[in-house]
Computed example of a mutant assay.
Amino acid sequence: MNTRRMFAAVLLAATSCSYSSDSESRTPALTNNLTEQEQLCVEERLASGWELNLSNLQTDLSPEQEIAVDMAVELCRLDTATNPTLPSFRNDQPQVSDELLEAPVTFDSGDNPPGTDSLLDDYWLQCGLGEAKACDELFYLAAPGSAYEQFAFSCGGRRNMDCALLLGIEQPEGDLNPLTPAPGDDEELDSWWTLCSEGSTLACGELRLTAPNGSLYAQFAATCGARGTSYCTLILDDDGEPPTLKDLSPSLNPPGDDEFLDQLWLLCSETDSRACKDLTKYGPADSLYVQFGVSCGGRAVAPCARFFADLISSSS
């Protein structure tokens, strides 16, 4: 972010100094030799910031407008040089590979780890022994398409489902339980907490979407009211969609406040479960970024990798 801002500032100063009053002779060169991707990028930047389009750039431009064109061209060339084009996927066809879906019959809980990464090997062994958290960590850290990823996704060669629900998680003494009273710090969140504790999937989802990330409220909601899984509809009757989810959708544009988070947003919208998780992890605690990540790109409050896999199963 800081590097990009510094680049823009330097570029602005440079273009200001090099501005010539002869706009007609200079303007056509500004947008010459653009690739199709660069041209689309320039069009979008100019249309949103200056209400300009490439078709009218042959007319006289003000000094400020010419600087804007210069900046748009240079920034778009930088973007296309450093950022690969994101693949385009249909949102109704989640990208979960056949290898992941077939992992329960490919692997057995007693299989030896590949031996190519000591940390992942350790998580593999723990996952094989039935440690749900180790399976989740292994899945998150493993390279896409690897045996590590497949073993973790199947909860150690068992089943393709929420490992916390399948294997159970030991709760340290003093942890939350469904009867834990609401913290009392926020009246609205306390109301959702109470309903979530009573078994409302809608309330658990709304609490997860609206509570500050990392808070006790969010922790309670993320485990369906301390019930040991983040996939509430697997264990509770689905009583509807959280109200906040209605304002989110996979086609929603990223906020534009942070380039890294915007990239994660776009990947999450294309059913990349890791991007959704990273968006939840790195987004500001009470931001739209976190809500988008938590909701699997505006789809559902659920563990995204499992949710995307279930979408495939239900459509096949």
Rank of each mutant, 00 (worst) to 15 (best):
T180Q: 10
A132T: 15
P254N: 09
L245S: 01
A203V: 07
D22W: 12
P255K: 07
L279E: 02
V69E: 10
A134P: 00
F151G: 05
A132D: 03
E44S: 15
D258V: 02
T85V: 11
Q37I: 15
C224T: 06
S146A: 06
E44D: 15
S48K: 15
S21M: 07
F89N: 00
D186Q: 01
P303I: 06
D238R: 09
G184L: 09
L129Q: 15
T194C: 05
E259P: 14
G130M: 06
L266E: 12
L176V: 03
G283Q: 08
L167H: 07
L209W: 08
P254K: 12
E51G: 03
L179K: 15
N112L: 12
S315P: 07
D22V: 14
E44T: 15
A103T: 03
A221D: 00
S20C: 11
D98L: 12
K281G: 02
A203F: 04
L120A: 04
P114N: 03
D310Q: 10
Q65D: 13
C268G: 08
L101D: 01
T116K: 12
E51I: 04
E74W: 05
L261I: 01
T194P: 02
P181Q: 06
D79W: 08
Q219C: 08
E198Y: 14
T31W: 14
T271L: 07
A147F: 03
Q37W: 11
G110H: 05
N53I: 00
Q219W: 07
D286W: 01
I235C: 06
P303G: 00
E241C: 07
D22S: 14
D310T: 08
S314K: 14
A211K: 05
L57M: 09
P303A: 01
P144Y: 05
D60W: 07
D108F: 00
